[in-house]
Design a protein around this nucleic acid. Structure first.
Lengths: 145, 145
DNA sequence: GCATATTCGGATAAACTAATCTTAAAAAAA
DNA sequence: TTTTTTTAAGATTAGTTTATCCGAATATGC
């Protein structure tokens, strides 16, 4: 569905969001541990998110990664876009390049419904919502918490 | 979503189904060309489908691959199962092993709806239906046809 | 039985994704 | 200004998926 890197990225963003209270920055080591992802790889992922302004970073002592108030309402679709691109939401279910609305493959109509549902869910689910689910309410857990 | 191999496999099965009339067997070369997939790789894929009894094969002159009447009503979920396995329909959207109904991750509820919709579509869509779409009705096209 | 057309199966190679390592750059504090 | 703590960036390695190749097995027709 979405790549492993992208799952790490969403987990990282949601974790940061769940601790966005103060201007508390968190370093790669802590984040990687918390979301149960390889440290060096997480660093790369966080760099990409920062470059896309999905999270924010600051170098030096007491620096680290954090998420700002105005970044919380970004849909997780933005994260998918930053890491995997949006091709999944556009391409044919059977992998045919020439498949389109006017020239549909035999699976097109059924598949389009699924694809659009995915897009819609990723579009309306914001980082804030997932962070909120994590904190309050029944759904909990990120890594081994 | 599903792997490239799996897309090839569905295309191959649907193509065979669209020509299932007589006991006309088709060899790898023709099938690969028709579904626009690499020949050697298609051979492997067809072998897997045969081993799972999704299609049938016969060696020797005038042999080849074909699909029998009783095989037409298999859901394409069977193909996904044969090639990719069913993990996609079971695993967590954020890649968390410990995520479950009783211990849901923050994305669980929304994601589950998507996952279940996918499963349901792959379950109720049979090879016959796709082949029928290909032949009659508006949706057409497999490779460059 | 022999030649031929085909699938089958294993080994190998290439391409892509995931993960690591190493050095540089930047910011803060001493 | 120097040291320390952190991210940034590039190069490298590992693993997985995709793709190819080749010899063996099997069925058909002569």
């Amino acid at each position: 569905m979405i790549s492993k890197s992208c799952q790490y990225a969403i987990r990282a963003a949601v974790f940061l969001a769940s601790r966005a209270d103060e201007n508390l920055k968190m370093n790669v080591k802590i984040i990687a541990k918390e979301i149960d992802a390889p440290e060096a790889f997480t660093a790369k992922t966080l760099q990409i998110l920062n470059k896309h302004s999905i999270i924010t970073s600051l170098k030096g002592p007491h620096g680290g990664f954090f998420i700002e108030e105005h970044q919380l309402d970004a849909p997780i679709l933005n994260i998918v876009n930053a890491i995997d691109g949006l091709q999944i939401f556009k391409s044919c279910g059977l992998g045919l390049k020439k498949c389109s609305e006017t020239n549909p493959c035999p699976f097109h109509n059924d598949y389009k419904i699924l694809r659009d549902a995915m897009l819609s869910t990723f579009e309306k689910t914001t980082i804030r919502i997932l962070a909120h689910n994590l904190e309050n309410g029944d759904p909990f857990l990120l890594a081994g918490r």
